[in-house]
Design a protein around this nucleic acid. Structure first.
Lengths: 203, 203
DNA sequence: CTTTGCGTTAACAAATTTGTTAAACAAAAA
DNA sequence: TTTTTGTTTAACAAATTTGTTAACGCAAAG
């Protein structure tokens, strides 16, 4: 049973991401990660030196991937409402895969405030900048009620991300199964669009 | 320096809440809590037996308090929009005090799914039930666009809670200071009302 | 004044978790 | 076949963290 090096590294990363970002075990131990991947714990240190460094890599990788997906949509030349519809779609879909990613980032940055600053300086994407002109134009044309780009983006993030983040709680309160909650989240894409624009989502 | 018993217990709880719910250190050690309170670590075990039990008490106490505040508003006989305005106000104000409470609950329940179920069975408050009739009435009167009570409440929670939860991230992205972020959150009360009802918040 | 009991502390013990290292192992190169 | 290289493992060491305990101090009760 010899797993090629790069394979193992990838396997560990995948399983660690699963524990952290899908299951929400944000203090998963190196042992738990190793068990999940079915490898010896020392391999984590062999490939990543320390838990801390692995964590940084996972976070950087996952956030980068998400940011790419998301800002490619926001920087596209789609008409505004279409763009936002796509954005909602991407955000919710990504969140279905990694519901606890934001939760992880929040905890991590609460402890180590420098990390988020450092990361922002590397991957600086102030998403509100990407839509501010288009938003202003829509507002001028009276297509949308006046709102700043910051509040608009925060509204959007909140409506998309929160139900993913708070999955366990909302699911328990409303007594939903995993599948019915998933359905609820898919439904929300339309709801969010409607809440933001006060009109049905087209098509 | 003899601190009365009940005083000390209260002090420890306060400082622990500060670390967990205000600062977002959701793996604060017993030592950190003791230091914050300026007492010997053993006192935590003296009063709460174990870290685990203290945590349960803190969570129960804080959630109960929040639920009371919040559902008293929702079960009042205010007109619908006034009621929601109050609700937004209460939720954001509470969140200003304990921005990381939800984050804590989320992590906790991810690890121990039973806890949230147990809690829900004790303090069963399905907030959407408290407004569903009134909401339906408003919709019938064409005052609000059609939406289920569940989605309506999740929208509301999302818009209120997410910016508190994600404080560190949003603050970093938008380059805000603590005070300007606080201002931003206060502003949001109107924004949220406007987003939900598509009209200015009165008074 | 002595005793009793609660609150407090320091010191200790145990458990958990991370990180290191030397040896084992397998496949490719010599 | 032997060597070499990169990967994997078990065993060990160190650090962190939780939980326990015995002793100390002080105030109120006897």
């Amino acid at each position: 049973m010899v797993a090629e090096g790069a394979q193992t590294e990838k396997l560990i990363k995948e399983k660690a991401k699963k524990l952290f970002f899908q299951k929400g075990f944000l203090n998963a131990t190196t042992q738990e990660i190793a068990d999940e991947a079915g490898v010896n714990r020392a391999l984590i240190h062999y490939y990543f030196r320390s838990r801390e460094q692995m964590l940084d890599i996972l976070l950087d990788e996952t956030m980068r991937e998400k940011k790419e997906r998301v800002s490619s949509i926001l920087s596209s030349d789609l008409p505004f409402k279409k763009k936002i519809a796509r954005y909602i779609d991407a955000l919710v879909d990504h969140g279905l895969n990694y519901p606890y990613l934001d939760n992880f980032i929040i905890s991590e940055t609460a402890r180590h405030p420098d990390k988020i600053k450092e990361f922002c300086s590397k991957v600086n994407v102030k998403s509100s900048d990407l839509i501010s002109e288009q938003l202003a134009a829509e507002i001028k044309k009276k297509k949308i009620a006046p709102i700043t780009a910051e509040h608009f983006m925060v509204n959007l993030s909140a409506l998309c991300n929160y139900p993913l983040l708070a999955k366990s709680v909302l699911q328990a309160i409303h007594g939903m199964t995993d599948t019915s909650y998933r359905k609820f989240l898919i439904e929300r894409k339309q709801i969010i669009y409607k809440t933001i624009f006060n009109e049905e989502m087209p098509e």
